[in-house]
Design a protein around this nucleic acid. Structure first.
Lengths: 149, 149
DNA sequence: TTTCATGAAACAAATAAAGTTACGAGAAAG
DNA sequence: CTTTCTCGTAACTTTATTTGTTTCATGAAA
């Protein structure tokens, strides 16, 4: 199964945006991911529509954060990406004749709904500020390791 | 994102196997799913290796259950299918240089592990016997509906 | 008016899952 | 003991989806 890496990508990008004082271009951000600027625009467009970021054209243009890191949760980003599927499994046939299959589907649907809401709760509990502070801890470790202090 | 429907398919098939007194052929089972017998063999092979079912060649051969329905959970079947990914999202790069991305990955990995174990708990709490009894309830409703009783 | 940037549409490539074909092997029926 | 039925497996094809790319229009700053 091919995983959707957009959430992970966007987290990475937005944290860099927060650090940069000025707008980051799609090209710069694409280099961070090792991909194409158009992919960045496509991926970020949902965040713009959700009001999490803003984009500006022309000289000195690029992408800017519209909220502070502690006001954005992973669930917000998931929603901005268009609520992509969280679970990798699902029912084969959505409206089967077979009563056995209907019973299977019903149980699966209930379990999947339960579990999806747990995943969303977990995503909602993590803010970008949390990850940013993890990063600062890492930076400290990194620094210490290189200076043997 | 394309969902993995093997769990759902196998539940359907195994419940039919439990109802049939005699072995079901891959061809019969393929017809139940609207697919090809080879797909059935491929999907069921993991269950055979896990000891949940048995297959027999030749005349009168086919697939047989090796355990009763209350001894098989959805987690057992998930394991027999080779522990396919449960979550549809993941990290873009597993060993990045960028410290920001490493912080993102670490948070994501922790959250994903937590959530995966919750999903597995949920799957382990459902047995095939549970679904079978849901089916019997449905059968009763169906019967009543058709006889207006 | 030139350069730099995004927006968006259309197209191409890569990937993974599902489906198919083909053939070998074992077991029962005749 | 030959035929028929069945699974096992490998190799191949098809299909669907995602990702990446090209291209051009639009707007803003130099």
């Amino acid at each position: 199964m091919k995983l959707d890496t957009r959430l992970s990508s966007v987290l990475h990008l937005v944290l860099h945006m927060a650090d940069a004082g000025s707008p980051l271009t799609s090209e710069t951000m694409a280099a961070m991911l090792g991909t194409n600027p158009v992919v960045v625009r496509r991926t970020m467009s949902g965040l713009r529509e959700a009001g999490l970021v803003r984009s500006e054209k022309g000289h000195g243009g690029g992408w800017l954060l519209e909220r502070s890191l502690n006001e954005i949760t992973l669930a917000d980003i998931h929603a901005a990406l268009g609520h992509p599927a969280l679970l990798a499994f699902g029912n084969r046939n959505d409206n089967p004749q077979c009563l056995v299959e209907r019973a299977v589907n019903a149980r699966m649907a209930t379990a999947m709904e339960d579990v999806q809401s747990l995943v969303l709760q977990r995503l909602a509990a993590i803010t970008l500020a949390d990850i940013r502070s993890d990063f600062e801890d890492k930076l400290k470790d990194h620094h210490h390791a290189h200076h043997h202090s």
